[in-house]
């Protein structure tokens, strides 16, 4: 076999590999695009529900009770932030959820709160034997709670829900939850878009490479 023939064969193999790579990138691009459309739809749904619950709470609290006039502009601190990893081309944005500047969780989950309270009440009364070890386990947790009582208080004051009053309707709480979900979804969308743009860059680069290789073959 001549040298020329061998070179032509290796070029053909390279060309086929490049075409396969190009196909993979194109498929990945369309997969990402369809995921992006799905997440966009989800965001639209979530925001729609959020707006509906906001209107419901406005209906029960009064028109002027849920507006920009209630925003606490003297002490407004973001409880949800985003970490940026500029090295990652696929997921550069990472949600730093419900955390204050100190890095402590702002919201205490209702389940944990209710369980602890139930145990506290039970500790003062006489209990069956099988519950005694549970209480022993809870003692350090109780101590921790009392030490961080003040901290929790200050954190809770940063909750935007309190701008609208102390006893806010359930619909406003639901609306808050839905908008928190919406924030999460926007971060997902931002990541998908960045991935889409990076795939586009790869595709354009590979296409240019293919054109150059095509010229050398012909």
């Amino acid at each position: 076999m001549t040298l020329g023939k061998k070179m032509a064969e290796s070029e053909n193999i390279n060309f086929t590999k490049l075409c396969e790579k190009l196909d993979d990138v194109a498929l990945e691009f369309f997969n990402t695009l369809s995921t992006l459309y799905e997440v966009q739809d989800k965001l639209e749904e979530t925001m729609k529900d959020g707006f509906l619950n906001l209107s419901r709470s406005r209906y029960s609290m009064g028109i002027k009770s849920v507006s920009c006039l209630q925003w606490n502009e003297n002490n407004m601190v973001a409880t949800t932030k985003v970490c940026v990893d500029s090295d990652s081309s696929c997921t550069p944005f990472l949600l730093q959820e419900n955390k204050t500047a100190d890095g402590n969780a702002l919201y205490v989950s209702p389940d944990t709160e209710s369980t602890t309270l139930r145990y506290r009440k039970a500790a003062s009364k006489s209990l069956p034997d099988d519950d005694s070890d549970k209480i022993e386990d809870l003692i350090p947790l109780k101590k921790m709670e009392s030490s961080s009582k003040e901290m929790t208080k200050s954190l809770k004051s940063k909750d935007p829900l309190h701008w609208f009053g102390v006893l806010v309707p359930q619909t406003l709480r639901q609306s808050q939850r839905q908008f928190q979900d919406a924030v999460e979804l926007t971060v997902t969308i931002a990541n998908l878009r960045t991935k889409l743009l990076s795939l586009r860059k790869d595709y354009v680069g590979l296409k240019r490479e293919k054109k150059a290789l095509n010229k050398t073959i012909t």
């Binding site: 959020g50 985003v82 940026v84 955390k99 406003l172 808050q176 924030v183």
Partner: peptide, 26 residues
């Protein structure tokens, strides 16, 4: 890393919703 903010430009209800979600900062 220090967390960065999410900004919002929109009508009053959109801003109220996202601020309720905890992104607002002055």
């Amino acid at each position: 890393q220090k967390g960065r903010l999410i900004a919002v430009i929109g009508d009053e209800d959109t801003c109220t919703g996202f601020l309720l979600g905890g992104i607002g900062e002055i």
